[in-house]
Amino acid sequence: MAVEPLFGTRAQRAFIITIAIQAIVVITMVALTFGIVHQDLGPIFDTAGYKTLPCYLAIFILAEIFELAMAFDALRLRNIIQLIGIVLFHGALIVFSALQVHETKDALYDNLPVFHKVEPFLIVAPCIIAASWLVLIYWIGQLYGEFGWVIFHVVGANPKLKSMYQYYQILICLLKFDFFCFVGVTMQLLIVVLASSSAEFGITIAAIPVVLLLLAGCAYAVQREVRWLMIASLVMMVASMSYLYKLVRFYEPSSQGQYSSTRATLTVFTIVAFLLLLASFGVGIKCYNDFDKGLHESKTHGQYYAPVKMQVIDAFKMGGMSERQSSYFTGGAPLEQRISIE
């Protein structure tokens, strides 16, 4: 017999459908908010104070597409660690959507009737995300039982190799979330805060390819066990942590005014991005120390969703034993059939 194919089980289908439905509902709520405010405010909507709303819409579209892609990827790889990462990410979306109620109110402070008109849509978003979060936790519990044997299939029964492979999975998962946080912070800065003529705008644009190369290079280095590239990636991670200085810019008197409409979400994104990068650096060092210890083949071929064939083996046929010989060694009873994983 064989393992169920991708989306071949109820848990897999329910997991991906839950994420898709909540994404559609949440993006619809945010789009309605955006449309109503844009219609009611007219020409003044494009002024600096109201840029929170297009940024809010852009971030949520990015987040929902990212989560859906991560969910599909986790099911395709049968990756429990990435599923846990999705649960944590979904929890962060609850916080972010709740913050947006406060920040939208601040942005519409001079037009409170407009805010009261869209407030129900803003409140629905975190409620839907929270409800779907509970559902996802249930289905991930089901998927844990379904995917729990995968690491054994990839690296065997050696507990040391299993531990090393899990750290490798954690690093790859962290790099994916690093990408989202970096894009989220950059998007907010470019849409809401920075003037296109400023030097900071140019520096932010220039940082995009550098960070993307860093993340892609680190992923390639840890998978292929390229030592020089991994060292370079770790050094660049340390340098990238200096981005935390942005927190000072958010709150110092000389510049806090330009960040007023998105200070809360920018602060959360920046701190989370820093913590993820710090965790990636720590796990990256551990993975670097595991190079050349027998894991290269498993990391290269991975655990893509190819159904694992399972074959029934007659024990009495192994080793050339006849049924009579097998009966002798078992006190007269023939050995039973057993299942082995190829």
Rank of each mutant, 00 (worst) to 15 (best):
Q256E: 09
Y138C: 01
I59Q: 12
L136F: 08
R249T: 01
E297H: 11
S260L: 03
A31T: 12
K286D: 07
A31I: 12
S298Y: 07
F177C: 01
M321A: 11
T267E: 07
V238S: 08
N289C: 10
I170C: 00
G320L: 08
Y288L: 15
M236D: 08
A221G: 05
M29C: 09
S261M: 07
V238P: 07
S196C: 00
V248G: 09
I94L: 06
I59H: 02
H296G: 15
Q22W: 02
S254E: 14
F34W: 15
L174R: 01
G332Y: 10
K299I: 03
L214A: 10
T267M: 03
V114C: 10
L41D: 11
G85N: 11
G35K: 06
L212Y: 15
A315Q: 10
S196E: 14
Y56C: 05
L212G: 12
V283A: 03
L277M: 09
L215R: 02
L277S: 13
D40K: 07
V30D: 08
I170A: 00
G141K: 01
V268S: 12
L136V: 13
D110L: 14
V211G: 02
I231S: 00
M321P: 02
T9G: 04
V101R: 03
D40N: 11
I65K: 01
Q337M: 06
R224F: 15
C173D: 10
T33S: 10
V155F: 03
G141M: 11
S198W: 04
A31G: 02
Y168I: 04
V118I: 09
L62C: 00
F60L: 14
H301Q: 13
L83I: 06
Y304D: 15
Y50V: 04
V268Q: 02
F180W: 07
A216T: 08
R249M: 05
D292A: 10
M321I: 06
R249L: 15
Y259E: 07
D106K: 15
E67K: 08
G85A: 07
V3P: 01
I341L: 14
V185A: 08
L57E: 11
I341C: 13
I17N: 06
A264W: 12
N289W: 09
I36D: 12
A315P: 04
A14M: 03
V238A: 15
L234R: 00
R224L: 10
A207I: 04
I191K: 00
T270N: 09
I208P: 08
I128F: 11
K317I: 13
I123Y: 11
V95M: 11
A92G: 14
P113A: 05
V222I: 15
Y56V: 02
T9Y: 02
L175I: 13
E252A: 13
